[in-house]
Amino acid sequence: MNNYNPLVALAIFFLIVGLLYVIFRPVKGWFWLLKKSIKSNEKVIIEDILKQLYHFEDSDNKVDMKTLVQVLDFNHGRIVEAINKMTINDLIYFDSDILKLTENGRDYALRIVRVHRLWERYLADKTGFHKTEWHDRAEMMEHKLSHDDADLLSAKLGNPKFDPHGDPIPTKSGKVAEVTGVELPLLPVGAVGRITHIEDEPDVIYKQILAENIHMGSLIKVIENNSTRIVFRSEGETVKLAPIVAANLTVARIEKEVAIEDNVARLSSLEANETAKIIGISRESRGESRRRLLDLGFVKGATVSIDLVNPLGQPNAYLIKGTSIALRNDQASKILIKKD
């Protein structure tokens, strides 16, 4: 130990730590980049092209080579290479300049879309990932899951028909359900409906939707609709959207008179000494946590009051059906109430 110097030891230590950080740091670490570049092999490129073509055809848009290169995040040469291979394998064909899917190509594309949407459903229902992460994670998964795995996953989820954005999940045999409803801007003032689809592209617009209190399956009532903005009420909040953003929401109109409560508040806003009736649970609460709230007795019509105020602000304890249950504020904010 004669030639030992603590400074040198420290320096070596921090060098190693720094190196590990550069290699393994999230997303941009070398390790992940390397992993990604190995994975973006031909299969991934082909599948991504198929998926893009499917989406374009689905929305009746035409694609040529140029647009395709623009939307895909691969280098030009590899895309051309992949396209050539796909034409040979009878997945796509050229109709003059326009790229089109063959019968086989469409089947293949549907399978990828199926895996992607199933996986999003899985992330939404069975995991704790935030909704902003679903899409990217599903994007990675869609190339990994085999056909059989997808069927197993589907059975495990109870063969869902729609993904958490409301997009239909193609069935095993390639059938695709219809999304019911119309774009929100087409609804007149006073109309009541249920949100059946939230378009997650383009990203900029989707982020604006995420920022608002808008959830799949919640009831809305249109209050104002003109060329500058659309205002509607949903779960007790008033939401104002630009028409271009609102167009990304699909709403199924409910014709019969549905009472949409006006003085809706959230349980988190309840003060000590107040009592309230529960109107329902926001659509934002899904899966296991929603079920748990219901099982604990937070059901429509139940009376609720604050039992104990927490010394640190939260969780507060609520008296519900004779028992004191503590909920954190983010949970309480998902329970809709009407104060007495």
Binding site: F129, G287, S289, L293, L308, T323, L327
Partner: peptide, 13 residues
Amino acid sequence: LKGEVSTFNLELP
């Protein structure tokens, strides 16, 4: 553990 399901409830018996 980011992706694990998280639910909170606490009964005060």
